[in-house]
Design a protein around this nucleic acid. Structure first.
Lengths: 342, 342
DNA sequence: AACCTCAAGTTAATCGATTAAACAAACTGG
DNA sequence: CCAGTTTGTTTAATCGATTAACTTGAGGTT
């Protein structure tokens, strides 16, 4: 199948390629008579002309491609939502996404940047799959947009989830249900999760605004997986004055908390209310009862980043844009059990 | 930052661009004197020359880009592994992946094909996120590779998981542990899952080879999610002569089976052995006890597809390549409880 | 008649490489 | 000493578009 070129269209319509180009791109269209325009369009249709973007790109210095460098597309189910958001905006704008997965390898990053630079992509997005503070790799274009990470030195457009607000929303949901002894099942510090500190801050803020004295015994840490959540929750439930609600760092820990509650013969949410974080479909929605949780706005962040990258939206390079994390209300929160003496 | 062109290197080295091109590409290198080669390389280094792939592509008719059309990158955690596999091979070969997500929309598919064709990608991969039989979209290049789907009419290179063998491996694991009453918790037919029939066939094959008469009462269907698995498992456990083992269509159903077992006061695997399918990290590894399951070879299929796309490997266009599904042995299988009369 | 304006195109340069063909200088062999 | 080969490099065409600058002829003005 031999490709048809603009010259073929021109020949068939009996005009020059310049005319074809103008007509097909709608440039200077007042200067071309309607009849000729018609003729050109028919010819293009007839020969099945498809413009060659490579040639166009060489001339216009625009490729309509955006490079998306990510550290790991593989190991998290979140990746997809971010890609989907970015991808949707790109498509709406007639752009294509070139994806490179570097697996956090500096050398791979350098190569990727090279390749993307060589391909003359119009913009670059640098995405992390966990909310992190990153050392911006050398060679990353000035106007690159950071997605789900903040630049260590500042000075770049970036978007991250508003974890602190998310923490507040989660704990407010529990306070509003009447809880006063609310535990926070946190991730261990060694994981260096930015989200951990921020969600904890949100937790403290709401306790303060509700006039609840934070009890240090209710802030426990564990590995942020189901097993860790189970152990941490068990410790909490062994407390003399045990919590009536738990805010968990993530849904997997919440899953563990469910198991611990079962083990202690407690029912969720009647005896224990639980709120998670992340809204992982496979966990949150499938638990019994379905888990009330805070969603990470991956799709929206992906959109935002692409919109900034394509110049559809302005960004303040000094401070990362905070994307709200919505509460997903399901069935794991209810008022605390009534006790004598209350 | 103004781009340096080959002409700049040529000027600095005091040679023509032809020489620079030959040296830098190692073409005809015997014909260029070592001194000149050295000079050119130094000049390129000094001015920080980076080749412009767009210009090169225009000339060579090769873009070193591969288009990857997928129906949904968003809604499944598997997507990432497939992309990662494809991406790794692409990188090893110095190629870039252009990703387009069409969300199964025919119009979007048409557009994507247009765009990729316009960008002159060297190859195209058409990926599904569930094992499916697909109607190949019109305009898909003859030599496109299908990933995790088989073409309705045949005649295309394709790779899919070997579900039947996977089913066999799963059930053999149970037979080997000594089970004879083995249930299959299947997905309902309305979901039209290719995998459903194939895994069932594998199940039947192993029963036959073990001389076990299949009991229709042990083949139950439900929605392939945790809730469906729970209900189906409960029905099975209410049977007068209940199964000692369950092979579940997927890990989510297995998760429900765990819940049902708990509910009936049975312990996994002491009273009931369970094998899942999919090896979804968030489910299988985090259950208590961890779930023995069959993994889908997404990474390997991604690699395979890209290798075929880049001509590194030959494929038979008549029959899809079957990728083996490995058994992931964890802790949900043990010998059946001993019964009187055995 | 001389001059200007306008409409409707066309010509040719350009984007930044690759590569076949041409060329100049040095060398080789009879 | 001259034809022929080898060596090392350059010239120029090419890939397929875009676009500034130019052309051509018709119509209008004075």
């Amino acid at each position: 199948m031999v490709r048809v070129r603009m010259a073929d269209v021109a020949a068939r319509a009996g005009v020059s390629t310049a005319t074809v180009s103008m007509v097909l791109n709608g440039v200077n269209s007042t200067r071309i008579s309607p009849q000729t325009q018609q003729r050109v369009r028919e010819a293009a249709e007839a020969v099945g002309y498809k413009p060659n973007s490579v040639a166009r790109s060489l001339r216009t210095q625009q490729t309509r491609m955006v490079g998306l460098i990510s550290d790991t597309i593989a190991s998290t189910p979140f990746a997809g939502r971010m890609l989907a958001g970015a991808n949707d905006v790109a498509r709406e704008q007639g752009h294509l996404v070139v994806l490179v997965d570097t697996e956090r390898d500096a050398e791979a990053e350098r190569q990727a940047l090279h390749a993307l630079n060589g391909q003359q992509v119009d913009a670059v997005i640098y995405a992390c799959m966990w909310h992190r503070v990153v050392e911006v790799p050398p060679g990353l274009p000035e106007d690159a947009v950071l997605l789900d990470c903040a630049p260590a030195g500042g000075g770049r457009a970036a978007v991250v989830p508003d974890e602190r607000a998310g923490g507040r929303v989660a704990v407010r949901e529990l306070v509003a249900a009447g809880h006063r002894r609310i535990a926070f099942l946190d991730a261990e510090e060694r994981f260096e999760l930015v989200a951990s500190r921020l969600r904890y801050e949100g937790y403290l803020e709401v306790l303060a605004e509700a006039g609840i004295e934070p009890d240090p015994a209710l802030h426990v840490r564990a590995e942020p997986v189901a097993g860790g959540g189970r152990d941490a929750a068990r410790r909490l439930l062994d407390l003399p004055e045990r919590p009536t609600a738990m805010f968990c760092f993530n849904d997997r820990m919440a899953m563990g908390a469910y198991a611990a509650a079962h083990h202690c013969g407690l029912s969720v949410p009647r005896d224990l209310s639980i709120v998670g974080y992340d809204d992982q479909q496979l966990v949150a929605a499938e638990l019994d009862p379905p888990l009330t949780t805070i969603a990470l706005p991956h799709y929206e962040m992906g959109r935002w980043a692409m919109e900034v990258a394509l110049g559809l939206r302005q960004a303040d390079p000094e401070v990362p844009h905070l994307m709200p994390c919505p509460l997903i209300r399901r069935a794991s929160v209810s008022p605390p059990p009534t006790q004598f003496g209350d």
